[in-house]
Write a protein that binds this DNA or RNA. Structure first.
Lengths: 267, 267
DNA sequence: CAGTGGTCTAGACCACTGG
DNA sequence: CAGTGGTCTAGACCACTGC
């Protein structure tokens, strides 16, 4: 059984909904119903039919809408919840996840103090050093899917914990989606940067990939991070992706790890 | 409905199976059926009723055994599969995961070459430097849940990729479960170290936690990793846990990150 | 072909939330 | 109390594997 999506939000960007056959393959490309439902829900998220923080229709409503059983909708939502795109709350409903909540303040930041829990030394202090327009270098362009020389915004900031500067971040953003972003707006905004991206620029960061290295600190790190040149720093290069799986941010972080460490759980 | 486990494998270590009430709380500690089934399956895994690589009974068989529906067993297995304790293979059955398979050769190793895929430079070369008995220092004892001074085994080895030494690892293991482990057995064994632990010592590593820092290389790294003293190295401190969630290995890794990087996906 | 896991349904009931 | 997500069942059928 295949589903014919009803044109609700006038936003089905993808034309070929089903039966995508791998090139030069005889595979029938069978796709279970719940995967098709999952894609329809994802399309609604992409189209902004339900915004971050809002609730989506109940399972029964969606089942009626898509003309499938509740269990099928349920399995679709389960997967989206596992990917952190949706959040289920028993008795209340299912909600679009957002970066604008206290609990997930630093969802992508895995640095922790060696002793104590994160936040035990008070809230992080953010210091915007600069925000300027620039031309994408080759590696920045490649990471963001742009052409070399295209206009990007470059942000530099320092994060301090307990009064000590711990992290220097250089951030590159494509200029077009982020038109109007200034150092002042960044400095005045309370809350995670990704929350500002959501509310002000309609850009939702969904997942990220990081490449981690150890590097000797440079001269510029001396004053900004209060370390001597040559000190070992953790280099964390992150590319963050949107609902559409487009790379929308390149972030090069330099972490002091004398009092903190990057924590990772392996399963 | 609560399940009364039948005494099959004579191995139900846990006495209080159900209804664990949080201290000083009136919470009824409701536990869904599938969670109870999950625990029973986990107990069988712990007891060694099904060994790594082996298949477990079919869903229908387990449903009959536990006197629940197939769907309930299914949900229990789903969660264990999500935790990488079981592996489902359509048409074949459900199997206990193992480290002794080519595909998951380096399940816990997240270092990748900057260009190319892992393994593109041929198989890793393992060089056992030493394996000796020692007394647990304070931090080693704390990590392994031992008392300071208890006997541990200490292994040192170097991993090379494409002929270049990239990783130095110092490994600490509690002496008792690993009695009989020698440098020779380690050197002669083909395959992942965790696979040897499974087959020879009945120790199954299920998950791990890592703390990552950047440190300057020490003098001993000069010859072993072929780097100059003071070069920035990635320090990866891993504690690995068994089925019973006991810490069974402390591993301090020192990674060269001039040609490789630690890769991490964030969701 | 039989046996396995994978999907889908319909319906009942339970636990949790908020008015 | 109604509405939500969460659990459980029984049964049907499908996709994949190996003999």
């Amino acid at each position: 059984m295949q589903i014919t999506p009803e044109p609700i939000a006038g936003s089905d960007t993808e034309s070929g909904e089903l039966s995508v056959v791998p090139a030069a393959s005889m595979a029938p490309a069978f796709s279970p119903l719940y995967q098709q439902i999952k894609r329809l829900i994802l399309n609604s998220l992409r189209a902004g039919e339900w915004k971050p923080g809002e609730g989506i229709p109940s399972e029964m409503d969606l089942a009626t809408r898509y003309r499938v059983s509740q269990g099928t909708v349920r399995k679709a939502i389960d997967e989206l919840a596992a990917e952190n795109l949706l959040l289920r709350r028993q008795g209340k409903g299912t909600f679009v996840t957002t970066h604008a909540e206290q609990q997930v303040q630093f969802r992508f930041l895995k640095l922790e103090p060696d002793s104590g829990t994160r936040g035990s030394s008070g809230p992080a202090h953010r210091n915007i050093i600069e925000c300027r327009r620039a031309r994408a270098s080759m590696d920045v362009a490649k990471a963001l899917g742009l052409r070399t020389g295209e206009t990007v915004l470059q942000v530099r900031r320092v994060l301090s914990f307990g009064g000590t500067p711990i992290i220097l971040e250089d951030i590159w953003l494509p200029a077009v989606p982020f038109r109007g972003l200034t150092a002042e707006r960044l400095a005045n905004y309370q809350g995670p940067m990704y929350a500002l991206f959501e509310t002000e620029f309609n850009v939702r960061m969904v997942r990220a990939e990081e490449k981690i290295r150890a590097i000797p600190s440079l001269k510029m790190h001396e004053s900004l991070l209060n370390v001597k040149q040559g000190t070992a720093l953790l280099s964390v290069e992150r590319v963050a992706y949107t609902y559409r799986d487009e790379p929308m941010e390149l972030r090069k972080g330099y972490y002091r790890t004398d009092t903190h460490h990057y924590h990772n759980a392996l399963n």
